[in-house]
Amino acid sequence: MKRVLAVTAFTFRELIRSRLLFVWLISVIVLCGLDFLLSILSFGSTLQIFMDLGLAGMEISGLLVLLLGLAVTYTTEMDQKAIFLHLAKPLTRGEYLLGRILGFFLVNCLVVLGMGLVIVGLVVFLGGGTVPVLFYECVVFILLEMFVLTTLGLTYQMIATSMVGVVLYTFFTVFLGQCIGEVQWLLNQQLSHWVKVLLRVVYYILPNLEAFNLKDRLYDPNLVLGWAQWQDILLYAFSYSFVVFLIGWINLEKREFR
C-alpha cells in the first residue's frame, strides 16, 4: 500500500503542476460568469438556478480535467515510455494502476470541491442565501461519478494504443453513459430479440451515469434519498469501478512495452 500511495502522490504532483489547474481556473471563471448571467436573466429563485448551474459546472470541469490529464499523461507515460521506469521497479502493475487512479481522483476531488466551495461562498456571502443539504449530497454523487470515470479513463489508458483513442473512448463512454435512460426506454419497446440482447449488453457494460445524476432530480417530488439509496449508489460505484480496474490490470499485465 505504501507503494500505491507513492504512485498516487507522484501522479497528483504531476497533474497539479501541469497546466491543468490553469484550465480549471478558466473554466471556474467562465462557468461562474455564465452561471451568474443566466441566473440574473431567468425568473424565479435566482440562487436556486445559480446552484443548479454550478453543479453542472462542477461536473463539466471535473470531466475536462480528467480528459486533459489523460491526454497529457498518455504522452509521457506511454508515448515517451516513462512507464518503463515504474514497471522495472519493485511495483506490481496493479499497484501502479491503482496509484494512478487514486492520484487522478484526488485531483478531481480538488477541482470539484474547489468549485463547490466557490459556489457555496457566493451563495452564502454574496447572495445571502442558504445552501440546502441536497446540494452537498449532489456533490458527493458527482464525486462518485468522477471516481467511476477516472477508473474507466485510466483503464482505457492501459488498453489504448494512442492518446486520441483514450480521450475519445472516455468521451464517448461519458456521452453514452448519460443516455442510459434512453437505452432503458428502448428495451421496453417492441424490438427484435437480437436488438434487445445487444441493447441489454450495452446497458450492462456502460456505466449508468444517470444514477449519479442527482441534480436533475432535485425537484422530483418522489425523490427519496435514504440510507438504502446511498447504499445502492455506493455499492454500484465501487463494484463497477472494481470490475473496470480488474480489466485494466489484466490488460496492463498482458501489455508489451516496445
Binding site: E14, S18, T73, T76, L85, P90
Partner: peptide
Amino acid sequence: YLPELPYFSKQHTGRELLGYFGSLHG
C-alpha cells in the same frame, strides 16, 4: 535499470524523482 532513453514526467525535480523511485524500493 537504465533505459535507452530515460524519459521522466517533466513536472518533477530531480530530487523528487529519486525520492519517488527510492520509495518504490521501500
